[in-house]
Structure formats: structure tokens, C-alpha cells
Design a protein around this nucleic acid. Sequence first.
DNA 1: TCAGAACTTGACATAGTGTAAAGTTGCAAA
DNA 2: TTTGCAACTTTACACTATGTCAAGTTCTGA
Lengths: 167, 167
Amino acid sequence: MGTVAKRAGVSRQAVYLHFRSRAELAIAVARYTDEKYGLDEAVRPIAEATDAEGMLTAYAAFLAGYNPRIHLVVRMASTMRRSDPASEAAWQDRLRNRRRNARRMAKRLQTWQRLNGDFSLRTAADWLTALGSVALWEELVLDLGWSHARFRDTIARNCCRTLLTDP
Amino acid sequence: MGTVAKRAGVSRQAVYLHFRSRAELAIAVARYTDEKYGLDEAVRPIAEATDAEGMLTAYAAFLAGYNPRIHLVVRMASTMRRSDPASEAAWQDRLRNRRRNARRMAKRLQTWQRLNGDFSLRTAADWLTALGSVALWEELVLDLGWSHARFRDTIARNCCRTLLTDP
DNA sequence: TCAGAACTTGACATAGTGTAAAGTTGCAAA
DNA sequence: TTTGCAACTTTACACTATGTCAAGTTCTGA
């Protein structure tokens, strides 16, 4: 909190006038990040896709583009959740959101009759959720040195190959 | 450190007689865990597999069985690495190991002429590495409630479907 | 002009990590 | 039996961080 205050050019106490605790500040930063970087807009191409391959490709492109912007905040949240109940709640909230969106995608695959028979709706949705986790992105891009394009294309291809049946 | 000491039935200072710092203790615990839970043995079925599907299935079974035992230690290490250089080094060491093993698997797929042409050796190895990350396991099993079997089977099936060509 | 919001300064409580030093205990080899 | 050492204890301290409290300042808009 001291460092944050210094960088903001205010006293350490002033930070506590706006955020009750370190955890609450972190949550606020996460919300702000989603807002500032236009999550809604970034997600639009997924909803606007008209076929299975297009949708999954849009999803992969979204992950490749959005994760680099939010991964530091998400990483902080993922450590914070272990010690702070409010942070855990915020994390669960975000997870529910990701899961709902993934479920929506899975449903559309079903509608298009492209969902592989090996996958239940739930398994497909959860798999899409997990492939969208920041942790996976961090491992591939930060630790293993994958480029933006390699990540995007591999995720897209693997989504298509695992989840889809031939049309 | 205080809690560790209490649970061990010694004074807090006694812990520092054995481990220089919290980070060093964590690293020692990680090493001990790999030893105690028989990493070498757990991995053997992968090496002993004689075909591509068998090997990838053994890998998935290993992940499903081993991750629950080590995930708490690994989670601790993954937060620790951000603040402690020795922890970061230990993490990198473990990552190199996982990567080498994954590369070995990818090479065998190549030898069997079963590696999908879309994958370079490196991409295949990295993908296997990332699918083996504790973070992915935690998200699917702990956060999304997947059973041991669902995790194992889905990982196995997806490995086969993405990485392999038809024989 | 003055009430209130935003901020400052300074002090304090609490908790955790790590260091230092002096004293205790138990055991094993000379 | 003694002695010397390793492991451990107790106590105290330095440092850092979070979070609370209270009194005082500054700026702004009604």
C-alpha cells in the first residue's frame, strides 16, 4: 500500500480513504482493468461469429489479445484469494462469468450440431473455460516463450480438433 | 515459520537452524515431496508404453494421480518464485525437467510416425508440458469440480485427438 | 464565508521474517 | 568419566507491512 501511495503521489493513509484494504484495492483494480480494456468489445467477435470454426478462432484470438493485458492483475487475485474471503468471492464471480460465457459457446456448437459426441455440454464448457485460464496463457507465453500468434493458432486449432465433429 | 515450528514441536528458531529462510524450506519440501511420493515410479508407465495412445493415456493417468499430491507445494512455489530468486531458480529447474520429459514423449510420437504434421516437435512438447501444469489441474478439478476420472479421460482423449495422426 | 470532502501528519497495534547471543541438554568418543 | 559438540531453547531485537485512530490542514463549491 505504501508503494501504491508513493506512485500515486499521496500519503499512505489516503489510499485507505478509498479502499478499505489491500484486497479491496486489488478487486477494484481488476474491475477497472476489465472496464478500461473493454472486455465487452473484445468479446464481441466471439458472439458475432456465424460458424463453429469462426467462433472458436475468435475465442482464441480474444484470449491471445486480452490475457497479456490482465495477467498481472489476475495473478495477484489468484494469490490473494487464498487469504482473503472477499478476494475469493471476487474470483468465484469472475469464474462464474467465464464459465457462463464458455457454456454459451458450447451451446452454440450444439445448435450448429458441431459439438463432438464425446463431450457433454458441461465438459465442453469447462474445457473452454480452462483453456481460457490466465495460468495456461502464462505458462505457454511467459514461461515457454510462445508468441502471440503461436498461442492463438494452437489454441484455436486444438479447440476445433477436440470439440468439433465434421460438419 | 512459526506455525511450522509449532506443528513440528520445536521452537521457531530451531527451524532456522535447518532452513535459512521460508523460501529454502519451501524448496526442500518440494524436493522431499517428489522423493516421498515416488515421482520416478509414477512416471514409469509412460516410458513403458509401446504405442502412442498408450503413452498419452499413461501421461494423463500420471497427471490425474500425481497432481493432487503435489499441488499445494507447487502452488506455494508458484507464488514464492515472484519474490525469491532461489525459488524462481527451483521453479525453472522443475519446468526444464517437465519440458524435457514432454519433449521425450513428443520424440517418441515422431518415431512412431504418429505426430500430427501441424505440430513441430517443440510445439507438441510445449503443449504436453502445459497440459501437465498444476494450474490447469487445479482449475479443472478444484474450481470446476471435475472428478479424477473425468480429468484423466478428457486430457487423454484431447492429447490423442490434437497431437496424433491416424496410424 | 463556511461546511464538508479530501488529504496530511504522526502515533500506535499487530503480525511476520530474519538475526543475534547466551544458556541448556543429551550423547558419543577419548 | 569427562569433555566437547550438535541440537535445541529462550529472549531480545531490527525491519517491514497492514490496518486503525485522531487531530489538523487545504481546497472547493454552495
